[in-house]
Write a protein that binds this DNA or RNA. Structure first.
Length: 269
DNA sequence: TTCCATGTTCCGCA
DNA sequence: TTGCGGAACATGGA
């Protein structure tokens, strides 16, 4: 599963729905070498005996507020392979070896952060906003005050390709390689198109498609459904048939990443 | 066995 | 200066 904005948002919603207001009875930490910007003992004491009281997201970062006290947020970044699993405490996961953080809550419920390839991060921060600021993250793509205005502002003066701009977490936070392909596919824009070459209308269209794709994907992931078959994500393979126009999906290297696109209906500007 | 992979960060280069 | 390409990180899957 690809942890971009929709997957992290789905995890946030699930946590809000099922994980809040239950005392954390056990904290198991097994980073096994993965990045933690907090000591195990500090993390444990920040969580143990408290309840989770809120979950927020900025881009691909998930923040979980611990207790009522100000300034104590667990931060999770999913890297390439991270995921959050909620399950009954008496159930074993498929592969407990990759459980990096496990919180057992009252009511026989557990929250497990899994990260097989250890490229994710576990941290403790005093506020999501301060973290985003310090990290140099751009506005979250789906935050209320971003919008078309923020999108235009982010792209203004950008010299490179539209794909790299969408993925630049310092411009706008949340879109990764796979959803950038999906958005450009649905907007019918070639990923190697220069930002400067996009018309004002094209930027408006791109923004509306981006928001629609990310919101729909977040809904679908929350319900553990699959995205529509008309989406590129389901056909993201060299030589596959384009679900939109019947053309052939191609793989290209763009902005240093593998980009999948349909040359027949994604016009290069 | 080799290559590739959703993320981020670093470096060198144009 | 900006942005790109490539490497690195740690693993697993095809």
């Amino acid at each position: 599963m690809m942890p971009e904005l929709p997957e992290v948002e789905a995890a946030r919603r699930t946590l809000e729905r099922e994980g809040m207001n239950r005392t954390v009875e056990t904290v198991s930490v097994a980073p096994d070498g993965m990045t933690m910007d907090v000591s195990e003992s500090t993390l444990r004491s920040a969580l143990l005996g408290h309840r989770m009281t809120g979950a927020r997201r900025h881009g691909k970062h998930l923040f979980v507020r611990s207790g009522e006290e100000r300034g104590r947020w667990l931060r999770l970044h999913f890297g390439m392979t991270g995921e959050l699993v909620l399950r009954r405490s008496d159930e074993d996961g498929d592969d407990p070896e990759h459980d990096r953080l496990r919180l057992d809550l009252e009511g026989s419920r557990s929250v497990v952060f899994r990260c097989p390839r250890k490229l994710g991060e576990i941290g403790l921060v005093s506020s999501p906003e301060a973290f985003a600021e310090e990290k140099g993250l751009g506005p979250d793509v789906l935050s209320g005050d971003f919008g078309l205005r923020g999108f235009r502002n982010a792209l203004d003066g950008r010299r490179g390709t539209v794909k790299s701009a969408l993925m630049d977490q310092g411009l706008m936070a949340g879109i990764g390689n796979e959803y950038s392909d999906e958005i450009l596919f649905q907007a019918e824009i070639h990923p190697a198109t220069k930002v400067k070459a996009l018309s004002e209308d094209a930027v408006g269209d791109l923004w509306r498609v981006a928001r629609r794709v990310l919101e729909k994907a977040a809904d679908v992931r929350t319900e553990k459904d699959t995205v529509p078959g008309s989406w590129l994500l389901v056909h993201r393979e060299e030589g596959a048939e384009c679900p939109r126009c019947g053309g052939t999906i191609r793989k290209r290297k763009i902005a240093g990443r593998s980009a999948y696109l349909c040359p027949d209906h994604q016009e290069k500007g």
